[in-house]
Amino acid sequence: MPTTKKESLQFGVMMCFGMVLLMTVYNYYLNGMIGKMTIMEGLSDFLIGFVIALILDMLIVGPNAKKIALKITANTKKKIYTVLAISICMVIGMAFFMSIYGLVTTYIHNGFTSSSVVKDYVVIFSSNLIMALPLQIIIMGPFVRFIFSRYIKSTKHSELRGV
């Protein structure tokens, strides 16, 4: 897929945008926030989450997920196994960190509502992982790879050929 830093950034922006958008709506639904917050509050929460996710993707989770996935799939020649391994490692890493973000924002908005931060984190992490893994593997991953290969990669190849 991405072969240059620019392409990696473009791919990461598209993937983060889609995943953060859908996961934000999912979490608003889970917390009963749809209809209770203004559009501006929703957009600002989305933008903050998007920036944090993009930074995590580019600097921490992405590089480490790729290293782990490439080690796991080193003995396979099937690219689909590598793609799935990277996707799974990315989802686990992003769910881990973004659940911390979700926990912090929940405490900021609602205060401490239970006696166990660890329990709250495990609940948030598991509910995010349950949604994010199939969302990434079945919907967003294939969709973003299609858009990327169709419009970003094809544009680059057209420019190289002088078309």
Results as ranks from 00 to 15, higher is better:
49 G>R: 08
31 N>G: 11
25 V>D: 01
66 K>H: 09
92 I>D: 03
135 L>F: 07
155 T>Q: 12
109 H>L: 11
122 V>P: 02
34 I>L: 13
83 V>T: 14
6 K>L: 14
50 F>T: 09
11 F>L: 07
45 D>K: 12
110 N>P: 03
11 F>H: 04
9 L>W: 06
64 N>L: 13
4 T>N: 05
94 M>F: 05
71 K>R: 14
111 G>H: 04
54 L>E: 07
126 S>P: 03
32 G>M: 09
43 L>W: 13
70 L>I: 10
73 T>E: 11
160 L>D: 05
103 L>K: 04
84 L>M: 12
24 T>Y: 00
83 V>S: 02
44 S>W: 11
148 F>P: 05
111 G>S: 04
14 M>F: 13
147 I>W: 10
85 A>E: 02
162 G>S: 08
128 N>V: 02
75 N>E: 14
7 E>V: 08
2 P>W: 07
152 I>L: 03
75 N>R: 11
88 I>Y: 06
106 T>E: 10
2 P>A: 14
69 A>L: 06
115 S>R: 10
96 F>T: 08
65 A>S: 13
117 V>C: 05
18 G>F: 07
104 V>R: 04
73 T>K: 11
8 S>Q: 14
74 A>I: 12
108 I>K: 08
78 K>H: 13
3 T>C: 09
121 Y>H: 06
53 A>P: 04
142 P>E: 10
16 C>T: 14
72 I>N: 06
108 I>V: 14
67 K>A: 10
100 I>C: 03
132 A>W: 00
66 K>C: 07
150 R>Y: 11
129 L>Q: 03
30 L>R: 14
62 G>D: 04
47 L>I: 15
76 T>V: 13
55 I>E: 00
107 Y>I: 14
52 I>L: 11
105 T>I: 14
117 V>M: 11
27 N>P: 02
132 A>N: 05
147 I>F: 12
44 S>P: 05
128 N>I: 00
160 L>E: 13
36 K>V: 09
93 G>Y: 03
21 L>D: 04
30 L>F: 06
127 S>L: 07
